[in-house]
Simulated assay, not measured.
Amino acid sequence: MTDAQRIDTPQGRRLAYHATPAKASDGRPGVVFLGGFKSDMGGTKAVFLEAWCARQGLGFLRFDYSGHGESSEAFTDGCIGDWAEDAEFAISHLTEGPQILVGSSMGGWISLLMTRRLADRIAGLVTIAAAPDFTEDSMWAGFDKAQRLALDMVQQVALPSEYGEPYVITKRLIEDGRDHLILRDPVPLPFPVRFLHGTADADVDLSVALRLMERAEGADIQLRLVKDADHRFSTPENLALIGAAVDEVLAAL
């Protein structure tokens, strides 16, 4: 596998990325993968999509937010606003023309923010276990009195994780998240959209997908529930569904 390339953002952060050019200039949009909270661009879904797009001759971009993977900065220094800035910069400077965004978990939230900030560049959207507003509706809402006190006193709290070391959640992450909430208002999505969600997802409740579907406004929006799929959504069958969803969006354009 080739080494990641690097690009510096106006905020002084250095992002690592892999970009694959389209094989033909046939006017089809490229694909951008937006990863999840504390995940990186070397994950199963990102690498699968890169290979899938290569077979289709589509341009493809995967990258690490600051504080993630191979990019600069510490994870605990970041927040939704920083990572959205990273995504906006990466899409603006590392892709050309319209793009289909594929957002996984937190990347679903980031991709929804991009549909507002880069409206003229977004041709379609696929989300996988999208987790908009999770800092407020999942983390903050689930904190007990002691955890909320810890945030005030020491500016952070550690949460257990099934994916490795505990997540260190900072007060800045929670407070900044409130500036980027999506589900309090209608979510205009005037292009083909496919939301994918597993019924066995223990990290993002199915109610989040239903609330997103309720808020979403557009002529071609579908929610696909996959029985027994978990939050990783990375079995061969699940990966094939992601490819099929991108294919559907392409066909609908």
Rank of each mutant, 00 (worst) to 15 (best):
R172N: 13
F191Q: 00
L151E: 04
R62W: 07
M41S: 10
E85G: 15
D176N: 14
D40M: 08
G124T: 03
P192D: 04
W140R: 03
I122W: 00
L181K: 11
L113A: 10
L112M: 09
G59K: 04
A200N: 14
P29Q: 03
L49M: 11
F48H: 12
D185T: 13
G97N: 10
P160A: 07
H18L: 11
H180R: 12
K145E: 15
E214T: 13
R211Y: 10
L49K: 03
A158I: 00
A131Y: 01
M114F: 10
S39C: 11
A123F: 06
I7Y: 01
P188W: 10
F233D: 05
K38M: 14
A245F: 02
V193H: 03
S92C: 05
S161K: 12
H18N: 14
T95A: 12
S71W: 00
R14D: 01
D176A: 06
A84P: 00
R172K: 13
P192C: 04
T95E: 09
T95P: 01
A158S: 15
Q155L: 12
L61V: 09
D230H: 08
A130P: 12
D3S: 14
L189Q: 05
S39I: 01
A202Y: 05
A84G: 04
P186R: 11
L118P: 07
D133V: 00
L206P: 00
E214N: 13
R215I: 04
G12Y: 07
L118M: 09
A202W: 01
M139T: 12
R232S: 04
F33R: 03
G107L: 09
L225S: 05
D230Y: 02
F48I: 10
T44N: 10
A84L: 13
Y17I: 05
A150N: 06
G103C: 14
T199A: 05
G67T: 08
D8Q: 14
